[in-house]
Design a protein around this nucleic acid. Structure first.
Lengths: 206, 206
DNA sequence: CATTCATATGAACAGACGTTCAGGAATAGA
DNA sequence: TCTATTCCTGAACGTCTGTTCATATGAATG
């Protein structure tokens, strides 16, 4: 019997779980599939994780934490709200591209309440971040007056759509730039330049 | 035993299936649950539907067909592209609100290839519709020049985001007006009025 | 060498699943 | 009333599920 260290096994299992969960969803993935993919026995899984739920939760926690930190770090020094929004969108989309798998797993399942708390607190953090950017942008005159909370919800929704479209249909790989442009400028032709042109790195749409 | 007409049973089953699928997803819903909810026996299901797959497919087909027709009819007489986009968004969102259930079922599952063809052709139809509106809008000067195909993809993505946010978190009930405004005007403050003011029924964002 | 310990195995369990089928019940036409 | 047809039932089948457990392995410690 080839005996491995517990640590190796644990990370093997996590890698396998990620692969299987993202291919078959939470319900579609079986512990046997994960075990087989991790080259361990079914029983072995239960040495490292209490059960299927905990295994999936561990994966989600890690990923959401990573993204949270990445966002926070990136936005730390940024003063210009237009740039901040763009960065926010870009990082989210790129993270999504890198980790398609778990996003699918999450959006695919339901009736599994166990990820809920995690996700709620993550989205709340994201909302707060955007709200602050918006407020700054309105104060500085870059953004037009709007209901901050409402607009934040809409931006989050929009972003979720971008992410899901990308993840669901691989061919839907629109660039972060295009997404930012739509959110910032909208569809309509504008005859003016953005209010704060010097700080704006994007070409206007007219 | 109370014997009912086959037609009644079939529609009972479809209603029950809709309820159960949308609550538990395709994999999570069992034929027993559906049968119980439709007040019929398990075997009875198989009189009206070949199997679980066909049952779900029937539901999807009906819903996508309905929405398709509704969109087509609503957009028939509309000339103004701004109005058309707004209408497109509004109808989609309202349809989503009315039929949260199945949307969830669809976005929750994967590895079920069977809905794919249906969905593909539906989305293609939608894309064509938007592309035509965009082209008209650019020609008329309402919209700024843009890559029509790319922008269409983005709009579809945005819309998908709105829909999913609404459906996933019930409290995310932003109005169609707000969504349309973001897509049309964007976040940035604009100092001008939209190019074709007289035809535009929304207040500008400045 | 003997003991201890974390790690690993895979057969076994109880339950749920989709699907089938022999049989029963209600209706319609004769 | 008899028969054909349609609709329905629920036990049964085989397969899969998440989880447990008696058992075994290999390395480290004494």
């Amino acid at each position: 019997m080839n005996r491995r260290s517990g640590i190796d096994s644990k990370s093997n299992i996590l890698n396998a779980a990620l692969k299987i969960f993202s291919e078959y969803g939470y319900r579609g993935a079986s512990m046997r599939m994960i075990a087989h993919n991790a080259k361990i026995s079914v029983g072995g899984l239960y040495i490292h994780f209490k059960n299927k739920e905990e295994l999936c939760l561990t994966l989600m926690k890690k990923r959401l934490g990573d993204l949270s930190q990445e966002l926070k770090k990136a936005l730390e020094g940024v003063k210009n709200p237009v740039e901040a929004i763009t960065l926010f969108i870009t990082i989210n989309l790129e993270y999504a591209k890198r980790h398609k798998e778990l996003i699918l797993t999450q959006s695919k399942e339901r009736g599994f309440t166990f990820g809920l708390g995690l996700k709620r607190s993550f989205f709340k953090k994201q909302r707060t971040l955007i709200e602050e950017i918006l407020k700054k942008g309105i104060d500085s005159g870059d953004f037009s007056e709007c209901d901050v909370k409402e607009t934040t919800k809409i931006i989050m929704g929009t972003l979720r759509g971008f992410v899901l479209s990308m993840v669901v249909d691989a061919y839907n790989l629109f660039t972060p730039e295009e997404c930012s442009k739509l959110i910032l400028y909208g569809l309509l032709r504008r005859n003016d330049k953005p209010a704060n042109e010097k700080t704006n790195e994007f070409k206007g749409r007219s």
